[in-house]
Write a protein that binds this DNA or RNA. Structure first.
Lengths: 351, 351
DNA sequence: CTGAAAGCGCTAACAT
DNA sequence: ATGTTAGCGCTTTCAG
């Protein structure tokens, strides 16, 4: 925690640059000639019954000696850390980068800090992070879509208020809110746009085929086809993961297997990978193949050929999640929120 | 921390799903018929003098009742949290996303976790984060380039082992290592490549003009010109920030002000913004204007027109930083490391 | 081999 | 208006 050395007596002393012992509430108390309790009250602004004089003295002493409270000790007694944990599959996915940033901003605005964990969509890591966060006393957790159903037993046991983002989750006592995107509609809009533009063979690329958030999107894609009276060809479907590497591989596979004039990618990262694969084969976007993304990550409009995509207001979702969590922490009896965000289509230059 | 309710007696009880009180070392001790000290020893594997029998009993009890140690309490007494803090200007900048991810991976490999802070290149926020991290007892801090010189007094006072990445920093007692990139060479290579390709008027776009990491890059850009006997035109220089928004604006400004056939951007985000601005004006890359980036962020090769850039092995740098930090934590007497990473040029399709 | 005791820095009843 | 006391859950001598 800090570089320390043996003190004059027996106890370990934390020393600063000039060899002074690091400041605790007791030191302030001694110097001010009051008790630790009084210092605590003043510093926590529970000082209605403290004389103006001692108050002043304590504050000036604290400032002068650069007193910083030990949050660890405080958390131990108050059983609250004002920290919230955030678990996402992979912060390298720009969608989650934005989400995490939004959560962090929202949390800080309300006096909370965040601890970030990457799960790599691995349930083991996810469980480890959950335990880690619990053990570090976070007040709440925002958990975003990994592809798999979490260990509900663990979640129940931890009893830490939880916000679940974009994933199915069992009914939990500690569930503070669910923030979801209407994937079915999003995928439906995406496919419908492409169908409306005259495309008949549209590839569908998405994440883990076993995960509900892929199944649901696929349902939207299929509904668009049914409503347009178009057949659904399983050869056009490739599901694996939401990152750009899979987008690249899936597109190569599709290109080898069949033909199509448009792609319905279920994340922008996927769409970026797809675009690279298309170029590899000398196919122009959108002339030879149109590409739709999903998420509207902040780099989507920065691509040389700005990506048409499904907007899902990532930052708003992150903000919503954290606010719901902290509101729940403030008052756990309030009704649980279930938010379903409606996506919209943004047309740029890849379709 | 957890949902609690008033117990049978007076004290607050932390209850799990079945109404059981949350497990502490004492509970295990009571059930096993031993003392808390013994349980602590076993669970921490300081059990050379504990009988096989009690050891077994304690482990099985701990597992059965899902005991999770309270890290807060542990940190309070051990004065070590096995957490390291990471401060970056903005995780939305893909360069820092990668850096943070690499630090996190490296830290976890060695049994540490990370807490992330975004400073927005704001010294006030940076100071606040430093204080926050100190107060939360992190064992060390990795701090990456904000544009401004930090408050050395604060750093000295905190006395937390620090890794400084890509920035000038005063000689500090607690400085565990500095990881730097040779920006001068990087910028020199970038400009030289462009000059070698026949360009005579090359724009230079970089971050905060007052920050040393801009000045140093500018020196490399100018040296390339001098060595090639080319004049340096201040009209071609635009410095402000490293993000894509500034890249966009700067390029518009440059385009309005003067003419050039190539751009030397001091970050890939800047280059992405520049590319957008160029397109806006109907200029093709690289036919009408070549663009060089810097950083080689993972999306650089994913752009429709893959970006030529200066590679700086971001993940390796992050890994290096965390390893240096933890090595220092393990043995503070070892010599401080100063690493200067050498960048190389990667040619793709924008030049 | 095990336990008792002390204490990390702080807060919160309850006295005074 | 302030101090006393008792702990939060854990680790760590030191004494049996």
């Amino acid at each position: 925690m800090a570089i320390c050395r043996q003190g004059a007596g027996d106890r370990l002393l934390f020393v600063d640059m000039r060899g002074n012992v690091a400041i605790t509430i007791k030191d302030i108390a001694r110097q001010a000639g009051v008790s630790a309790a009084t210092v605590s009250k003043v510093l926590n602004r529970k000082d209605q019954f403290i004389s103006e004089e001692t108050r002043e003295k304590i504050w000036s002493l604290a400032r002068e000696r650069n007193y910083t409270p030990n949050s660890i000790a405080r958390s131990l007694v108050t059983r609250s850390s004002r920290v919230i944990g955030i678990i996402v599959p992979d912060i390298l996915n720009a969608y989650f980068t934005e989400l995490v940033r939004a959560c962090d901003v929202a949390a800080r605005e309300r006096g909370y800090s965040t601890i970030l964990c990457n799960s790599d969509s691995d349930p083991e890591k996810e469980a480890a992070h959950l335990t880690f966060l619990a053990s570090h006393g976070v007040d709440g957790i925002v958990m975003a879509a990994s592809d798999l159903i979490p260990d509900a037993g663990l979640l129940e046991r931890l009893r830490i208020p939880l916000i679940s983002m974009d994933r199915e989750i069992p009914e939990l006592d500690c569930l503070a809110a669910r923030i979801d995107t209407d994937y079915e509609t999003g995928a439906f809009l995406s496919a419908s746009h492409l169908i409306g533009a005259g495309h008949k063979r549209i590839a569908f690329v998405s994440g883990n085929p076993l995960a509900s958030n892929t199944k649901i999107r696929r349902a939207g894609y299929e509904r668009a086809h049914r409503e347009a009276g178009l057949p659904i060809d399983p050869d056009l479907i490739e599901c694996g993961a939401f990152n750009h590497r899979f987008g690249l591989m899936a597109t190569r596979t599709l290109l080898d297997r069949t033909s199509f004039s448009a792609m319905c990618c279920m994340s922008d990262m996927l769409a970026m990978g797809a675009t690279v694969a298309l170029r590899e084969r000398g196919l122009g976007v959108p002339e030879d193949c149109a590409v739709m993304g999903f998420d509207n990550i902040y780099i989507a409009p920065l691509l040389v050929r700005p990506l048409s995509t499904v907007e899902r207001r990532i930052s708003e979702a992150g903000q919503l999640a954290v606010d719901a969590l902290i509101d729940f922490l403030d008052d756990p009896t309030q009704p649980r929120r279930m938010v379903l965000m409606e996506p919209t289509v943004i047309l740029r230059e890849t379709t």
